[in-house]
């Protein structure tokens, strides 16, 4: 008798646990879906290769062992324009400490991106994502969005919206190879 009671308890607990886990997982992934879709902190950053305005190719996997500060932006986006000079300052501070800065423009014309770069005096590499495939694989919704990628090639943090210069410095420090 006691035996069967125990068995019943375990069977019921197991069934309820499986059902609860399935439902909690479903709700969790549905609720978080819209916000950052597939990519989450800790995931491997999807590889990509883009040619910057100077004609140099940047392939993410080539920066293994270095931190990558990956910024998605557009010339029409005001907060992007605000944070870019600060990014440029910190780019100079951290570029020799193993943190690569890369700004990816979402499908605008070469002329426009060039004029923006010159008028803001930007020196870090800027590449244009012509066919929006990098944008899609990183699921970029609002601009600016910044991905911190650590030296292991994993996503350390996803930042949506504008950053202050202090933020940028802290973030770059965070992904500096030790």
């Amino acid at each position: 008798m006691a035996q069967s009671k125990k068995k019943r308890f375990y069977i019921r607990t197991a069934i309820l646990a499986v059902l609860t886990i399935a439902i909690v997982f479903t709700i969790y992934s549905n609720v978080t879906k819209e916000k950052n879709a597939v990519l989450r902190v800790g995931d491997k950053a999807p590889d990509f290769a883009l040619v910057d305005l100077e004609g140099n190719e940047h392939r993410l996997s080539d920066y293994k062992g270095e931190g990558v500060f990956l910024n998605f932006w557009g010339t029409w986006c005001k907060p992007c324009a605000t944070e870019m000079p600060a990014m440029d300052n910190q780019y100079h501070v951290y570029k020799d400490q193993g943190v690569q800065t890369l700004a990816i423009n979402i499908g605008e014309s070469q002329l426009k991106v060039n004029s923006f770069k010159n008028s803001h005096g930007l020196t870090f590499p800027i590449a244009i994502d012509q066919n929006k495939s990098v944008m899609q694989s990183y699921n970029i919704a609002p601009l600016p969005t910044t991905f911190l990628i650590n030296p292991e090639g994993r996503i350390e943090k996803i930042i949506k919206g504008e950053m202050t210069e202090q933020d940028i410095a802290d973030f770059m420090e965070q992904i500096k190879p030790s």
Binding site: I15, L19, T20, A22, I23, T26, I27, N30, V31, E34
Partner: peptide
């Protein structure tokens, strides 16, 4: 329809279906 509570209700209905049937 994508709120946690609505999906929770559907999930509870699923549990109810399974347990009541068993």
């Amino acid at each position: 329809y994508s709120s946690w509570w609505f999906q929770g209700l559907i999930g509870m209905l699923g549990i109810s279906l399974i347990i009541a049937s068993l």
